[in-house]
Design a protein around this nucleic acid. Structure first.
Lengths: 229, 229
DNA sequence: TAGTGGTCTAGACCACTCA
DNA sequence: GAGTGGTCTAGACCACTAT
């Protein structure tokens, strides 16, 4: 385990925060002083403290100095991966079936979440992702048909999830996680009781101000999304 | 909107990736060349490319150079906030009630997830978080009684959630998100039907190799965890 | 206005890893 | 062995903001 100077400074600063040598709300020494204390350059101290600020341990303001955050906001990150790889990482064989594809006017909820005009039609897809032949995840997606390159995509072979990740230039979006009771259709696919509690994710993605897609992924009973902090 | 040099370089590189000037799998020019092209120092290019690598757009290896990622893994972050602040940010008045507190042997699942010996007793708490007097979240927590300072914590007044965030030195842990059917107890608190689909989070947190706490937060019907990418 | 963090440079050396 | 990214330095100037 090699440790660079800035990593060492970061670790030492974090130790002091945890040991309350630097208590919440306290102002800590400025970069120049710390650089002298640690025998390194100010840029190195800056790198370390920026990491800690990014992680939520410190709050930094010009002129006001650096303070230990009163409420350490831990940030967890998770990867928006391709479903196929999620399945593969569980050691299972991924499968995919396109169930349905049409072009039509979206319901109001979708239209609003993508900020579309009243008359705009979207492509609607539903597809099933399989893990070792068992239903894993149901994909219900609305696609902006003007997305470049979309006409060359074959959603019978490649899931929209995968195609978009690799081909669409998206700049941002929103994600919501929630629980959902299985409706008739979902219960059939997952062979589970009606009303079964299922984990679901809704995402909207954008390329600047242009909507690309809105998708709901409903996972099979028992699925857990796992991450670390 | 001020744009620094490294942010400009980052944006330009991202533009080239999206425009497929630099296609997935391609090797891009090395830092020295880009620095010359952009008329800045190599350190500035390095800063920009590191950001893009961190975000999953690039894969960098010494000697092998920098390549555009074949599968761009977008990373989303969400904040592990105090429940009270989550409620406040929705414009509601937070409330808290301690329901139950005892010390006893944990069930096997908890014991294993915290890697405890067979005979180790833990503090068990259940508490209810309220938003505008309505049940918002049910907290079911197992606490390591050896956590420093714990004896001075008054969990009648301050939620364990809040006390731990502010007082426990934790270094890491795991988080799992899933859906759960309401059992009898939960259904009573939330005044919802038995079996209602609820969103839940389980976290374990550690101070190095020492377990601090394992908690399950079960949210009221309709709750959504929201974030952006 | 002055103090502090944010960025940038030119150059250097090191660490990793491909060939 | 050699090419490339990772880090570090000393110094400089800039941007923001508390006072």
């Amino acid at each position: 385990m090699t440790t660079t100077t800035w990593q060492w400074v970061e670790a030492e600063a974090l130790r002091r925060i945890r040991a309350r040598d630097w208590a919440p709300g306290d102002r800590i020494p400025d970069e120049a002083d710390l650089a002298q204390e640690f025998g390194c350059s100010r840029a190195t101290v800056n790198r370390a403290l920026q990491e800690l600020a990014h992680a939520g341990w410190l709050e930094r303001k010009r002129k006001a100095g650096t303070r230990v955050a009163l409420i350490p906001v831990r940030k967890a990150t998770f990867e928006i991966a391709i479903i196929r790889r999620d399945i593969e990482s569980q050691g299972k064989r991924p499968g995919y079936r396109l169930l349905h594809k049409t072009t039509l006017l979206p319901p109001a909820a979708i239209r609003d979440s993508l900020r579309l005009d009243d008359g705009t039609e979207l492509i609607h897809l539903t597809a099933l992702h399989l893990a070792d032949e068992a239903p894993f995840c149901l994909e219900d997606r609305w696609l902006n048909p003007t997305t470049p390159g979309l006409d060359q995509a074959d959603f019978e072979r490649v899931s929209a999830n995968e195609w978009l990740v690799q081909n669409a230039a998206f700049s941002g979006g929103g994600i919501e996680f929630f629980a959902l009771p299985a409706n008739v259709e979902v219960a059939q696919w997952f062979a589970c009781p009606l009303g079964e509690a299922l984990f679901a994710v809704e995402r909207t993605t954008w390329a600047g101000a242009t909507p690309i897609t809105a998708v709901r992924l409903t996972y099979a009973p028992g699925y857990r999304m796992i991450t670390t902090i």
